[in-house]
Amino acid sequence: MLPEFELLMPRTLSEALEMLTQAREGVAPIAGGTNLVVDMRGGRHRPSVLVNVAGLEELRGIRRENGHVVIGATTTVAELLEEPLIAEAAPVLWSAARVFANPLVRNRATVGGNLADASPAADTAPPLLVLDAEVQLTSKEGSRWVPLDEFFLGVRQTLRQPDELLTAIRFPVPPSGAVGGFYKLGLRKADAISVASVAVVVEVGEDGTCRKARIAMGAVAPRPIRAYEAEKLLEGRVLTPELVAEAAHLCAEATSPIDDIRASAAYRKHVVEVLARRLLSEERR
């Protein structure tokens, strides 16, 4: 059963920020609640005050702004799927949204919540990492933009301070030559936590060389991670099968997975390499 807590219902963003500042220890913002409520029922998280930000207009919507795609933090995963801008500009994120949990959870879970919860297996994280996304952290004192890659510190740990709210996510609109994909391996076809996931975006020039490569992986380290060495290897070179295989191997090298009831560390490493190779091979064609 849910433990007791106080539920605050701010009407505006500034009210919400005020509440986060005022509340003592144990305050948590809540939007979709698809992680938080489960954690509270299971006794893993016992906030005494919840600030419900789900209804705040300021945190909603997806828009194009100064060469960026900006996603309000309480945009639901289902809304990512419905928004043509995401399908056009960031198919890698759209693909991740499509295999995210199940339709009921997609209707409630928010992008901001998925990132702020900082599960190593959060499915929106790898695609947003390869899109060079930043998150906006806002407190009463003001706002700061932080690269998503720096935002994640460890398992369920982020740069967000208790009086801050994750208010938006943005990424530069990728150039038209950028292509990418996302693949998640779960133990069934829907409603399963990732055993491992990989997101890839590459920009290939007309001469066939790779101008820019971004690869990110989920559920294979304490936090969603980039494969820097593999990216470096690919940039400036032609994506031959041999090079792709080598890069995929470097992806696996970059991981530090754990054994758990879903899979062994060895299997996760193996699968990351397979998925990275397949995604990069698809982009080569």
Binding site: N102, L187, R188, K189, A190, D191, A192, I193, I261, R262
Partner: peptide, 27 residues
């Protein structure tokens, strides 16, 4: 293919439907 009921030293590790997976409509 997927139902993996794990008991360790008599304790059930898969005591919920997020860890004990049964087929969905897609499976």
């Amino acid at each position: 293919t997927m139902e993996n009921f794990i008991v360790q030293e008599g304790r059930v590790l898969t005591d919920r439907l997020s860890t004990y997976l049964i087929p969905t409509a897609l499976d």
